[in-house]
Design a protein around this nucleic acid. Structure first.
Length: 569
RNA sequence: GCCUCAGUAGCUCAGUUUUGGUUAGAGCGUUACCUUGGUAAGGUAAAGGUCCUGAGUUCAAAUCUCAGCUGAGGCUCCA
């Protein structure tokens, strides 16, 4: 807000006609204008930046009071004067500020006149010539200071972010939410609903799964990329997400530009595709991204790791020609089957076909659906057809897995897409030197790492394969006498298997209690050493909960464990 | 988002309605000390509580009322 204060012998003003259409008519007594003597005239312009009107008014009053006491008058004239600024607030805001200021000044025993807002007015005044008779002031509310002044009590707020308490009354014993807590994998907090706080142990599983995927897809000829977390709204308008998916998108802003927190990875990936011209020799182009996405979901659908707001997709986009389509899909189905067999998952397949609202010709849809069907048949995969359930841009194959309550969750997905290449005008130069449009395949194998880990935990009842176990082996000593030998064993194991996740428990309690503790953490290899082992230079190992204890030489055990981890078993 | 249910110590739970009432209890875990043992809980002691948050009713609220948050199951939608 900008003001000029003028200390005048008198001011006379009279409204002539409305300058703004929406302004209400003046009451009769104001139509003839008025005259104020010995006045402090405040020419005022409220600006767009004056959003915190309460603070602005407060500061305006402070300024007026200060000047009024200096020039020794109590007659204030508030005079709207738009010409002081080129960045005016809305008339509503301006009137609000001026009215509020008038009210407060009157309470403080000033005599206040307010010239009508939104009228062309004629005015006449005689300004005194003393040093304080003409002053200009800029009234600014400091945003940072403003935030500080906002009253909050951090101790009280701390009370509000209590830890999330799980109601396990209807859950099975092997529910991932119960096991996740027992095995110290992750937690939730009400301050971030639907978002996972990964503890060290859980993050190990996530990283191992990603590592496994990286290794496999590299062999399959994939590149890997990473795209920004927030991207200008424009991109989502181009992709169509703005219309189709808006209510699920988190919005933010940066320097007066609207940004969307990405709900999907594809549009970002497409920008990489477009960053350089493509040739038919580049196709099929397989690009993977382990991308973090955020989606606003209805609060009632959230649940454990199965349905979350923030998750990582093992996403990939394959850009290919029509001819390559079938073999690419076949490859992806093979890949999904390979991954799911690795975990002994029984999955159910659905083929979703053209919906009523769709883009693309029937011919293309025929081709696309046929391609998907053909590959499924060829692979002898049983599937259910979900008529009309495809995406608006193409048909899809979904892979479903079951949880401990026998509910099905969609994990892997293969989606054909003719829409994005069109909207983003993707092109490659073909053999005949003509520009052609590639087809895009979206695919995810785990689907979301979160959901997949939830299913994994329940599937294995917490007893994960060794390569995924957060703690792969724990060394226990029988008595203090055996601690040195135990440390020697640890050193040897760590030297021979550098990536081994090994820990120990030398607590001065019974072996039974230490074994129990280790079993609760579902540690696959519990290595116990006592006088006997020390004497024979062996290890007594409890393998994957088996009560029959096996004895190994250190060398044999190391070999076995190393092999198992390397082969991801 | 809607319907139903739940939230008390790090974890699992008593206590909460019928009946609001002194300093909110237990087991496990933790810490200290004792115990030196052969594969899912060795002993003793101590520490540990925002009774989800806020407001209301009341002389008095973990307990009653209202609002909100989070979680669970279901509906609907998705990976």
């Amino acid at each position: 807000m900008k003001i000029i204060s003028l200390h005048a012998d008198y001011i006379r003003f009279k409204p002539l006609k409305k300058a703004l259409k929406k302004i209400e008519d003046l009451p009769e007594e104001e139509k003839s204008g008025s005259e104020v003597k010995e006045a402090l005239v405040i020419l005022a312009a409220v600006e767009k930046t004056d959003t915190n009107t309460a603070e602005v008014v407060k500061k305006l009053i402070e300024n007026i009071k200060e000047i009024a006491s200096q020039v020794k008058t109590s007659n204030i004239v508030l005079y709207p004067y738009a010409h002081l600024s080129s960045n005016l607030a809305s008339p509503e805001t301006a009137i609000k500020v001026l009215e509020e200021a008038e009210k407060i000044l009157k309470k403080e025993k000033f005599s206040v006149s307010r010239a009508p807002f939104g009228y062309y007015k004629e005015f006449e005044m005689k300004v005194k010539g003393h040093p304080l008779s003409e002053l200009s002031r800029e009234i600014k509310v400091d945003e940072v200071k403003d935030a500080e002044e906002e009253k909050y009590d951090s101790k009280r707020l701390l009370k509000e972010i209590s830890k999330t308490k799980l109601d396990a009354s209807r859950l099975k014993e092997n529910d991932h939410r119960i096991l996740g807590q027992q095995m110290d994998l992750y937690s939730f907090n009400e301050s971030a609903p639907g978002m996972v706080f990964w503890h060290n142990n859980g993050l190990i599983i996530r990283n191992e799964l990603i590592g496994f995927s990286r290794e496999i897809i590299k062999k399959e000829g994939y590149q890997e990329v990473s795209t920004p977390q927030i991207i200008d709204k424009k991109l989502w308008q181009i992709s169509g997400h703005w219309e189709k998916y808006r209510e699920n998108i988190f919005l933010t802003e940066y320097e007066n530009r609207e940004f969307a927190v990405k709900p999907m990875n594809c549009p970002g990936g497409i920008l990489i595709f477009k960053s350089s011209p493509k040739s038919y020799r580049d196709l099929p182009l397989r690009v993977a991204e382990f991308g973090i996405v955020h989606r606003q979901e209805l609060s009632g659908v959230l649940g454990g790791l199965f349905r979350v707001v923030q998750f990582i997709q093992d996403d990939a986009h394959v850009y290919c020609t029509e001819k390559q389509l079938e073999s690419e899909i076949e490859k992806i189905i093979g890949l999904i089957d390979f991954f799911y067999k690795k975990f002994n998952f029984q999955y159910r397949v659905e083929l979703s076909t053209r919906p009523e609202k769709r883009i693309g010709s029937d011919e293309i849809w025929d081709k696309a659906e046929d391609a998907l069907k053909k590959v499924l048949d060829k692979k002898k995969i049983k599937f259910k057809i979900n008529k009309g359930d495809g995406a608006f841009y193409g048909p899809k194959i979904d892979f479903h897995l079951k949880d401990s309550l026998n509910r099905e969750w969609q994990c892997a997905t293969i989606q054909l897409d003719f829409s994005m290449p069109e909207r983003f005008e993707l092109e490659y130069t073909d053999k005949d030197n003509k520009r052609k449009r590639p087809i895009m395949i979206h695919r995810a194998i785990y689907g979301s790492l979160e959901r997949f880990i939830g299913i994994l935990i329940e599937h294995y009842k917490g007893r994960l394969p060794t390569w995924l176990s957060p703690i792969q082996a724990r060394v226990l000593n029988f008595t203090d006498r055996n601690e040195n030998y135990a440390r020697k064993i640890i050193k040897e194991l760590e030297e021979k298997i550098p990536c081994l996740r090994l820990d120990y428990d030398f607590a001065k309690t019974t072996v039974q209690s230490k074994v129990k503790e280790a079993e609760l953490m579902k540690i696959p290899y519990i290595i116990v050493v006592g006088d006997r082992e020390e004497k024979e230079n062996t290890l007594a190992v409890r393998i994957k909960g088996d009560r029959k204890i096996q004895s190994f030489s250190v060398g044999d055990f190391t070999e076995k464990l190393k092999k198992e981890i390397e082969e991801r078993k």
